[in-house]
Simulated scan of single mutants.
Amino acid sequence: MKLNRRELVQVAEAAVLGGLVFAASPAAAQADRPPSSAVRNGGPLGARLQGVQHFGLTVQNMDRAYAFYTEVLGGTEVMRDGDFQGERIHNTLLTDQEIEARVRRVNPRTLGVPDLKGGAQRLDVRFIQFDNVVIELLQYRDAEQPTGSGAAFAEPLDKMSPAFPRMMHICFYLRDDVDFNKFITDLEAESARRGMTQVRANRVATVTTEEQRRAAPTVANSNSITEGKSNGWTLIYCKGPEGEQLEFVQALGPVKRVFDNARAAHLKVASR
């Protein structure tokens, strides 16, 4: 049976109205409504998260670290706070270390546990925003030390190999059109200009001295993977100004699609 134009319009209008009625129905409204707090709090733990908020890095020199992450790498300050002390903040951050000291029957200070409870040490923080994540810089200092440039409470760790269990690193994601090798060259040069001599990237070529590392050709600044599941992934490890472990990566081609698809699938599940 053929319908004339008027009948087609009437059918279309009925379909639209029917859809509106369905959408306005209690069942449809319930389906579109976000879950209540009670439902959310009774659901899986993962459904109660909304991603990673920040990574924290305890530093020896707050001003130096801040300059690197803002002036060199281009982050922007979110906020800063400090002079934290007292029982609540001490217990919030350091209870496990206090218990460990008592298990070992030693003074917590000998394990590098600051006394925020009594106020002998203080904590300062600064938050730095990047495109998709925040980095928090923390410095523990003696109460009489000045904020920012004062000496840290504890010595920095000497063993910073990424092979150590518990060792973490911060990874920065380069834009697709960036020349990776030139980026590393410029990063080292800009950091050196500011006196940040700890900022040193590894090389793909085998080197055995710092002089050889500096003399390596620019093409040795990155490791590009062209086969297997990581096809399109480029990376290099680098130390930051505090001796912290950094990584820089670029994801193109097949591996970029893998990560993009995984993110889309995760967001689809998380939005349910």
Rank of each mutant, 00 (worst) to 15 (best):
D63C: 05
A38R: 02
M62D: 10
L57H: 10
L137P: 06
L93R: 01
V125M: 06
V72H: 03
P34F: 05
R102G: 04
G56H: 06
G119A: 12
L45V: 08
G51T: 11
T70S: 11
P34D: 15
D96E: 07
G43Y: 08
Q97T: 07
Q60S: 15
L138S: 08
Y140D: 06
T76M: 14
D131H: 00
V103R: 00
R88I: 04
E71M: 07
F84G: 06
D96N: 06
P108S: 07
L73F: 00
V113A: 04
T92W: 07
D32K: 08
P34Y: 12
L116W: 02
P108N: 06
T92C: 14
Y69F: 10
G46I: 12
Q60E: 15
A101L: 09
E71L: 10
V59H: 01
T95H: 09
G56P: 00
E100N: 11
V78Y: 01
G119S: 11
G56N: 08
R48V: 13
L49P: 00
E71T: 11
G75I: 02
R40L: 12
D131Q: 04
I99E: 15
G56K: 07
D96H: 05
N61G: 14
Q60N: 15
M79W: 09
T92Q: 12
L45G: 10
T58P: 00
E71R: 08
A120L: 11
H54V: 09
R122A: 15
D142S: 09
R141Q: 08
T92G: 12
Q50Y: 02
Y69P: 04
N107Q: 07
G119M: 07
Q53K: 14
R88Q: 11
P35E: 05
V59W: 05
R80G: 04
R102V: 04
D81A: 14
D83S: 10
L57V: 10
V78D: 08
Q121I: 02
L73N: 03
A38Q: 00
Q50K: 01
V113H: 03
H90S: 11
V52P: 07
R122S: 13
F55C: 10
P114I: 10
R104K: 13
N107T: 01
G82S: 06
